[in-house]
Design a protein around this nucleic acid. Structure first.
Lengths: 118, 118
DNA sequence: GGGTAGTACTACGTCCCGTAGAGAGGTGAG
DNA sequence: CTCACCTCTCTACGGGACGTAGTACTACCC
């Protein structure tokens, strides 16, 4: 998987937050702060779908874009990818476990426990 | 933290594997497969230390480089960084817990348990 | 004192990404 | 019908990171 640039991530954030597939125009309207040309938004949406982050379907002349995977799945995959960089996965995992804050350790513990019960 | 390129990572791998600080020449000798010019290795080592991944100390005219942090710490930090990308850390953590394979889930569980006991 | 090793500085090509214009083709208003 | 407009696709440019390396200078060994 390739990483995302800053604008790409902003746009993914919008689409992740929305439940319905959006057109380029709709996305553009939601990034007013950056005052981007419409084609800029279109280009980025196109690149994102080319990279597999978005799926798109026709709606008249326009495309509607929606995330191919949930944000959580994306983040989890990034984490697994980071984990793959190490030779010693166990050590890295241990380290990671120590690094997460208390409440998050609790979340992890719970998720792992549920996992065990299945 | 910035990511590492491929050559940069190869070189970090060498230095992480070694316990002693190495000179550019020594590092270069350990990447024979790529047949790099000595200056290439030096440039990359220089960039890595500039980025904070390596510390260097003088040894005669030469520099000796060694990692500023362990590989595990680096990987753990990458994982935490990925985690920061989400709005919903709990969901992402849960997802992550589900994604790690069984034996690794075991490692995580153990690390978390030890954490709890302290 | 000349070869060797090591350094610092500079450079070039490539790829990714932010950004956007040009041109093509449909569409609705008058 | 015609024109303004929307949306698409294609092309492009500038900056930054990275792989790669040359050059020029200095210091040491024999």
């Amino acid at each position: 998987m390739k990483g995302l640039g800053e604008l790409e991530r902003s746009i993914m954030d919008i689409l992740w937050a929305e439940n319905a597939p959006l057109t380029a125009r709709e996305v553009g309207r939601m990034i007013e702060d950056r005052d981007l040309a419409p084609t800029t938004v279109m280009t980025v949406l196109d690149r994102l779908s080319r990279k597999g982050f978005l799926n798109r379907t026709r709606d008249g002349r326009a495309w509607r874009y929606q995330p191919a995977a949930s944000r959580d799945a994306y983040v989890a995959e990034l984490m697994l990818e980071a984990l793959d960089l190490t030779g010693d996965r166990d050590a890295a995992l241990t380290r990671f476990a120590q690094a997460v804050s208390g409440s998050e350790a609790e979340i992890l513990r719970k998720a792992l426990t549920e996992l065990e019960e299945e």
